[in-house]
Each structure stands twice: as C-alpha cells, then as structure tokens.
Lab assay of single mutants.
Amino acid sequence: DETGKELVLVLYDYQEKSPREVTIKKGDILTLLNSTNKDWWKIEVNDRQGFVPAAYLKKLD
C-alpha cells in the first residue's frame, strides 16, 4: 500500500559508510520513511531501511 508514502529522487550516488546507512544511486526514486532530522533522512532501498544525507535527496510532489 503506497498511499501516503512520500517519494524522493536521488540526486547523487552515495555509498553507505555504516550499517545504519544504505547505498543509493543517482536517478533512483525511493520511499521516504522519515525526514524529521534535517541532515539525515531514513529511506527504503530494496527492502532495506537506512539513512542517507538529506542533501542527496529531493522530495517529489
């Protein structure tokens, strides 16, 4: 059920640097789980959840 889920576009590649982070690729469109922290957003990638720098993402309307 995708209702109410926010999507984000990945602006730059990011390689995870800790187990709490996930790797993302430029151009991916992913589900945003939590954006309350202005610097690190929690997203879902391939059934994995983790954090990436918010500056690497853009919210889609």
Rank of each mutant, 00 (worst) to 15 (best):
D1E: 12
D1P: 15
E2L: 12
E2K: 07
E2N: 14
T3Y: 12
T3W: 13
G4K: 14
G4W: 12
G4H: 14
G4R: 15
K5G: 09
K5D: 09
K5W: 11
E6L: 14
E6S: 13
E6N: 12
E6M: 14
L7S: 08
L7D: 04
V8T: 03
V8E: 00
V8N: 00
V8C: 09
V8Y: 08
L9H: 05
L9E: 09
L9I: 12
L9Q: 07
L9G: 03
V10P: 00
V10K: 00
V10D: 00
V10N: 00
V10E: 00
L11Q: 04
L11D: 01
Y12P: 00
Y12V: 11
Y12E: 14
D13E: 05
D13S: 10
Y14M: 01
Y14W: 09
Q15V: 14
Q15L: 12
Q15G: 08
E16D: 05
E16R: 09
E16P: 09
E16S: 15
K17N: 11
K17S: 09
K17V: 08
K17E: 08
K17T: 13
P19F: 07
P19R: 07
R20E: 10
E21P: 05
E21Y: 04
E21K: 04
E21R: 04
V22N: 02
V22P: 01
T23H: 04
I24A: 05
I24R: 00
I24T: 03
I24D: 00
I24Q: 00
I24L: 05
I24W: 01
I24N: 00
K25Q: 09
K26N: 05
K26Y: 04
G27R: 02
G27D: 06
G27S: 04
I29D: 00
I29W: 04
I29F: 06
I29A: 02
L30F: 09
L30K: 02
L30P: 03
L30C: 12
T31P: 14
T31F: 11
T31Y: 10
L32S: 02
L32K: 01
L32N: 01
L32P: 00
L32Q: 00
L32R: 01
L32G: 00
L32F: 03
L33M: 07
L33V: 11
L33G: 01
L33F: 04
N34P: 02
N34W: 06
N34F: 06
N34R: 06
N34S: 12
S35I: 05
S35C: 09
S35H: 08
T36W: 08
T36Q: 12
N37C: 09
N37D: 15
N37A: 09
K38W: 07
K38R: 13
K38L: 08
K38E: 10
D39F: 14
D39H: 14
D39A: 10
W40G: 01
W40D: 01
W40R: 03
W40P: 00
W41I: 02
W41C: 02
W41A: 03
K42W: 11
K42L: 15
K42D: 03
K42Y: 15
K42N: 06
K42A: 08
K42Q: 11
I43W: 00
I43R: 00
I43P: 00
E44T: 08
E44W: 07
E44Q: 14
E44F: 06
E44V: 11
V45G: 07
V45S: 08
N46K: 13
N46D: 14
N46S: 12
D47K: 10
D47R: 09
D47T: 08
R48K: 10
R48F: 06
R48H: 07
R48G: 05
Q49F: 07
Q49A: 10
G50C: 06
G50Q: 04
G50Y: 08
G50T: 05
F51Y: 13
F51G: 01
F51W: 15
F51T: 03
V52T: 02
V52C: 05
V52M: 01
P53E: 02
P53M: 03
P53N: 02
A55S: 13
A55G: 10
Y56S: 09
Y56D: 02
L57A: 01
L57R: 00
L57V: 09
L57Q: 00
L57C: 07
K58R: 12
K58E: 12
K58I: 12
K59Y: 07
K59H: 07
L60T: 06
L60F: 09
D61R: 10
D61W: 10
D61E: 14
